[in-house]
């Protein structure tokens, strides 16, 4: 077993554990830290969901320097490392990845062919929908005066369900939305939410630049076996040098590559455009 999958699962489970631990600590009267992935911190600092910051700023039509600053941490992370939030932190990502394993198992059981990577056209259409949805939601937040994505965002829904069921003693009815998303992903659309809809992931994807962390193929070592392409649940195709804004830098392709032809160089300085990122 490679170190990365273990570390990544460890991180995802830790985040979930923190989401449970914070309200439990609060119940035990330890409340120096509070919050969820929508915003957490102490009295002196906060880290907030940048999409939440964007929505509430639009919805309330105010700009608050402190709030904007609190949203900057995850934005900065995305600038440096792309959508690593999705693969290392996001609780929905964790469940979605598990769902993907189920999805693949179901395919095997029903003797269906393994999923094919998105064609460039499919990928482009998906990206267009993804960013249109993000844009429309932000406009809707402004128009309706409420942060509309918060009603469907599984990250917040899971967070509040945990707070509700531990601290407030309410039933986490929010998890119904999460369950529907997972059902659709498992049954029909491989990681459909994360790939085509999730506005949080979209926002982080939008933040990536050519300098951001991504998967790089060593063309000399690559034998063109396409293992990486089958492994990628987000529709990218490293073997064809098609690694787009959906890439969460989970590194699964790197780990499965039999020739060790893929890598995630921390410093992208001086790399050639052809050797790596080609955002579609």
């Amino acid at each position: 077993m490679k170190w990365r999958p273990i570390a990544r699962k460890g991180a995802q489970v830790s985040v979930l554990a923190m989401l449970v631990a914070i309200p439990l600590l609060s119940m035990a009267r330890i409340d120096f830290i509070q919050g969820t992935l929508c915003s957490f911190g102490t009295e002196s600092w906060s880290v907030s969901c940048p999409l939440g910051v964007a929505q509430t700023s639009l919805a309330s039509r105010t700009l608050d320097a402190g709030l904007l600053l609190s949203g900057f941490a995850f934005i900065a992370l995305a600038f440096v490392a792309g959508r690593v939030f999705c693969s290392w932190i996001c609780p929905q990502g964790f469940f979605s990845e598990l769902g993907d394993k189920v999805h693949l198992a179901v395919r095997r059981v029903f003797k269906r062919p393994p999923p094919r990577p998105d064609t460039p056209a499919q990928y482009r259409r998906g990206q267009i929908f993804l960013y249109s949805f993000l844009g429309a939601g932000l406009v809707a937040s402004f128009v309706f005066g409420v942060p509309v994505f918060c009603y469907i965002c599984p990250i917040g829904l899971i967070s509040r369900a945990i707070v509700g069921s531990t601290y407030l003693g309410t039933v986490g009815s929010e998890l119904l939305v999460v369950a529907i998303i997972l059902f659709v992903e498992v049954s029909f659309a491989r990681r459909g939410w994360c790939k085509y809809i999730c506005p949080v992931g979209a926002l982080y994807g939008a933040c990536t630049t050519k300098r951001s962390l991504t998967v790089v193929r060593d063309a000399h070592a690559c034998v063109g076996c396409h293992t990486c392409e089958r492994e990628c649940s987000m529709g990218n195709s490293p073997v064809d040098d098609r690694v787009g804004r959906t890439c969460t830098n989970c590194g699964d392709c790197v780990d499965v590559c039999p020739e060790a032809a893929l890598s995630q160089p921390l410093v992208q300085l001086g790399k050639k455009a052809s050797a790596g990122v080609s955002p579609s």
Partner: peptide
């Protein structure tokens, strides 16, 4: 309702 980020802090 517009400015609340629904974080439960």
């Amino acid at each position: 309702v517009g400015s609340c980020i629904r974080c439960a802090r």
